[in-house]
Design a protein around this nucleic acid. Structure first.
Lengths: 211, 211
DNA sequence: TAGATTGTTAATCGATTAACAATC
DNA sequence: TAGATTGTTAATCGATTAACAATC
């Protein structure tokens, strides 16, 4: 039983996809699934599916397969634990607003506890149950409430300025939409980069080099 | 000289990052860079930098290094070609609006040529220079204008319904923000998935398993 | 018992890193 | 010529796939 000695990033990145497909199956009323069925849906091999699950000890039954409900429960526990993570939003522009709508209304495992912006016309505005504060309150807020996750929807230079403070204040995870490469600077903090610009560029490369 | 026999996805995904760092260097007035300097900035090895560039024939000079301007020009050409790609937006909600703002105002290599929504109250609204049309016009528009890229900011079920039509109408690249796994269904079309939900889940996993 | 399917070890494949010859 | 740094080949590392024994 390997049980999380250290799970590799490729495996971690596949967990949400398993979770999505299993949720679908549960909704359809399916109770049982084999590694080969899951593999077909996921576009991978049965071997990989079994290897992936065995990073966590294996959730199946030899000769039988996997129980959808059990598997979903176990993955859900791995992904979300019991308590949601407290998240703060920094940057309440169009993207920040859309993202925090998603986080609040559609995602599981997070709770938006505050939002900050530097623009006076944003301050005071209500956003999904929280009142937008000026960034000058950021430090004080963190010291009092200890949020774990920061969502960065600010320009590159602001991200660069804010990051050290946030790490200092105990932020353990960044959902980074800025163009700043946080990952390079803070090795002991988790960063999920959503670099829209990079994504668009690699799409453009690939479309331009099709056929 | 390997010159694009078939460039691997990991290499392609690094190109935008090189491009970003080189743009920065050019702005700072730097004219010359070595593979080891680039490696340090990118958080990788000099070997990888040289291997990456040599997928395209190599842009450096032995004993000297790389010329920033030349390298930037070459990468820019690889990523964007001469003509921008014509893109259509489908789904003009909060996320679709934020995304197309980005595509129109901040990104290079794309031109937003149309936007579609199914909601009557959206139709007719102006969005970054285009007028939102009803999705029922989608087919006709594509037949007349042949856009190459579709940006999907619609729910899963709509994405599932729209995808075959769009592929059929000649769409060669998808920027997919829906929760539908396009990649599984259409092997001969380029898909850039931005699965915000997956990103949030893997962030949550990692934060919960820190230390 | 036979068939199915997992858990787990072994083999393969591909990507990253190291080494070094070429050359400016 | 000596020093620097690339282009390119070879070695290593890690992830994926295949194989098979365990077991329901």
């Amino acid at each position: 039983m390997p049980v999380q000695g250290k799970v590799s990033v490729p495996v971690i990145k596949r967990l949400p996809k398993y979770y999505r497909y299993l949720s679908e199956m549960k909704q359809k009323g399916l109770t049982k699934v084999s590694s080969s069925e899951l593999a077909r849906m996921m576009g991978t091999t049965a071997s990989q599916v079994r290897q992936d699950f065995n990073c966590f000890g294996g959730f199946g039954q030899q000769g039988i397969g996997y129980n959808v409900e059990v598997l979903l429960y176990e993955l859900g526990h791995l992904l979300f634990r019991e308590e949601p993570l407290d998240a703060i939003l920094i940057g309440t522009g169009r993207l920040g607003t859309a993202i925090s709508s998603y986080l609040t209304n559609d995602a599981r495992g997070y709770r938006l506890v505050a939002a900050f912006d530097i623009r006076p016309d944003q301050v005071g505005r209500q956003l999904f149950g929280v009142c937008i504060q000026h960034v000058s309150n950021l430090r004080a807020f963190c010291q009092q409430h200890h949020p774990q996750v920061a969502v960065l929807c600010v320009p590159k230079s602001s991200a660069k300025d804010l990051a050290p403070t946030l790490v200092d204040m105990g932020i353990r995870g960044f959902w980074n939409f800025s163009h700043y490469d946080l990952s390079v600077a803070y090795p002991n903090v988790v960063v999920e980069n959503v670099h829209l610009g990079d994504s668009l560029m690699s799409l453009s490369y690939q479309v331009n080099h099709l056929g």
